[in-house]
Design a protein around this nucleic acid. Structure first.
Lengths: 240, 240
DNA sequence: ATAAGTGATTTGTAGTATAAATAGGAAAAT
DNA sequence: ATTTTCCTATTTATACTACAAATCACTTAT
């Protein structure tokens, strides 16, 4: 499950490289980048490829280019924080405790509400999809399989809300949650500890009991939060 | 308040033009675009500018390019729905009833929770900022001034959560909410109808009463929802 | 019938040239 | 001395050309 992220094109490599440097703070906000010609040379790409990458980073709010002035790194306020790449870069380079806190709070807000909505509006097919993910969790024999199934469970629950915006929100924070789930489960001697609680949520959705689903999901999120916090020091070490 | 959106650069124009065409459905998912040389010519720009635009659209998940095969429009599932541009394009071209429903549901989930968080964690400066926005709402003499102050109120409340992800989420849906607020307020004979409820929320935040703030904000969102629904037919007509 | 190979087509990358914007200084006016 | 206007150098923006890389569709050999 070591997502290869085989960057096919050159400009994608440049996007990743510059993006990571900016988000990690290696390139400080307000600071000017070398002018295109020099930067392209130093990265061993053509100015064409560099510029295509810069347009994308600009669209993500990371940089700002103006004629004569040059290109400078923008303040973090302007970053498109909900962009999948930006989140992934934050995750890859030092997921600080405050970042994890923000993520957990987001989950506490979104997921219980989504569970309630799913209980109200799910279709039979969507329910089956959730059940399948649950079964995969139950059948998981190692941490990786568990994490994949766990993500699928939450993903399919979000889809069952039939709200495209909610679904997108999850798919965006999915990357971050991936590393988070592993962190959370790793601390448990038995990584299947959360299985019964998942079943309760599934049952509440199946029986169309929104409030039960909401409470069940809230407990689920809170449990994994406390698991992460039992091991505070290890939080800022990315593996990959 | 007729946001000009003066698109300075050429490739930004191309981004906007193609983006709107895709999101509006004028260019159907799965369909191939003309090859770069032809498309560039038909849009009267160089292939360079066109490609810079395509890289951005590609990053937003709207299109996908492969050598020899060409470039095709991706399914809506893959679109970066929480991208500010994508949301704006959806808004500009036919905000369907289901889209508005999704937006309202999002608000119902996010904003009460955010009000509660703001009540817990706001700083004095942030409280003052909220109060300023409230005062501006109270002093508003026309719908435009009201809408601006209303947006500012919600924006500053979100900021007072001190959660960057929540703040980003709001700034993303802000554009959509802008048109939504106007729609909501236009139906009220007196657009200041919601002012007292805003004050209640502000007071709850000031007194650090999370649950009161949550309930107050929930009522606020629900009220504006019912206002929008009183005039269902007019919902799908963009102005600009 | 199957496999290997070949060519044509489209995007990807590089390089060069010129246009447009503007920061910063020089010159002129007050 | 201060302000205004103008100029110029520098950097990004756009255009154009050429070639590389990938791969679909077809051909050929076995």
């Amino acid at each position: 499950m070591v997502r290869p992220i085989v960057v096919r094109s050159l400009h994608n490599q440049v996007i990743q490289e510059l993006g990571k440097m900016i988000v990690s703070g290696e390139l400080e906000p307000g600071k000017s980048l070398p002018r295109e010609e020099l930067l392209a040379e130093s990265m061993s790409v053509s100015r064409t490829a560099l510029r295509e990458a810069m347009k994308v980073l600009s669209a993500k709010g990371l940089i700002e280019s103006r004629q004569k002035t040059g290109t400078r790194v923008r303040q973090a306020i302007h970053w498109n924080q909900l962009d999948a790449d930006v989140l992934a870069w934050r995750c890859a380079s030092m997921p600080t405790d405050t970042f994890i806190e923000e993520l957990v709070e987001m989950r506490e807000i979104i997921e219980p509400a989504a569970a309630a909505a799913a209980a109200r509006r799910h279709t039979p097919e969507q329910l089956t999809a959730i059940k399948d993910a649950y079964d995969a969790m139950a059948a998981a024999e190692d941490l990786d399989a568990w994490a994949v199934a766990d993500l699928a469970f939450h993903d399919r629950m979000l889809r069952a809300t039939n709200n495209g915006l909610l679904t997108s929100l999850f798919s965006v924070i999915e990357t971050a949650l991936g590393t988070y789930f592993v962190m959370s489960a790793r601390n448990s001697a038995n990584f299947k500890l959360a299985l019964p609680q998942h079943f309760k949520v599934y049952e509440a959705i199946r029986r169309r009991q929104p409030e039960v689903a909401r409470q069940g999901m809230l407990k689920l999120v809170d449990d994994s939060r406390s698991n992460v916090h039992h091991q505070p020091g290890k939080a800022n070490k990315p593996q990959r």
